[in-house]
Amino acid sequence: MRRTETLLAIGGAALLVLLAILAPWLRFVLTIALAKGVAVLGILLLLRAGQVSFGHALYLSFGAYTVAFLAPAMPEALILMPVAMLLSGLLGLVIGLFVSRYRDIFFSMLNLAISMVFYSLLEKLYHYTKGTDGIRVGVPRFLGMALERDQFEWAMFGTALVLALAIGCFVRLYLASPMGQALSAIKTRETRLEFMGLPARAVLLSAYVLSALMGGLAGSIIAMTTRHVTPLLGYWTVSGELVFIAILGGAGAALGPFLGAVTFELVRVYAAASFADAWQAILGLVLLGVILFFSRGLWGMVESLWRRRA
């Protein structure tokens, strides 16, 4: 399955590039999908430990606003991204020190609560954040070059794709490592970990910080792609969307989140265009179908189809 996964990842990446060439307007949608996929990879790490965060839009919006605030002073995409990522990771460390003490519903709700506090700040501190109007992000330079809008969109799409592949690889290795395996051990028998001398909190905290790093990075890509950030990016429905995508794509492998994110964004775009009032219902039906018939998500579906063929 490992080689299959690599092949599928490369095939999938090629398909996305092809789509972006054939339908240029999809480039924007796909860049957002890839960014969300990266954020969902972070959700997947926490899901391995049996923990669901309903507040990871916090890191998405934090990364996005970091870009919005710093872009005028530092208009270079390849600096803005790592800075947003690192600051978000730092925030994740501070919050993680607190939330990693809790499990299950308490973990979910605390994340939700903290993210909603941040959302309110974004909305209320009008003087700094321009409230619900949001902040416009100018086109930053890319590798020192001032690109045309079209070229910049290509650059962002390419960057998102490369980062998605790299982080996907990292997550795959991480999940197979003792650290990743200990994450699933938290889900099944946390006390035993302590009696083996492994601090479960530290294991969960590491995953939490990683998820914050990924969320911040995703947020920075979204900010530079949409070029307008509003508090909505930090609203709880966006957190819910990330969990939705994780379940839709399947938490079994690093490809799941991207499969989920691309499907989600495409269904949303097409459903919204065809049935403007009913697109959420259509997404809901798609998820219902996946949960009922493929509890391991779209990735589980691909896996079983592949097995049947082999």
Binding site: F170, L173, Y174, A176, S177, P178, M179, Q181, M196, G197
Partner: peptide
């Protein structure tokens, strides 16, 4: 692994 830790996050269990 618990006895031997800490470990690289990228080497398999």
């Amino acid at each position: 692994a618990a006895r031997e830790g800490p470990w690289s996050p990228l080497a398999p269990l």
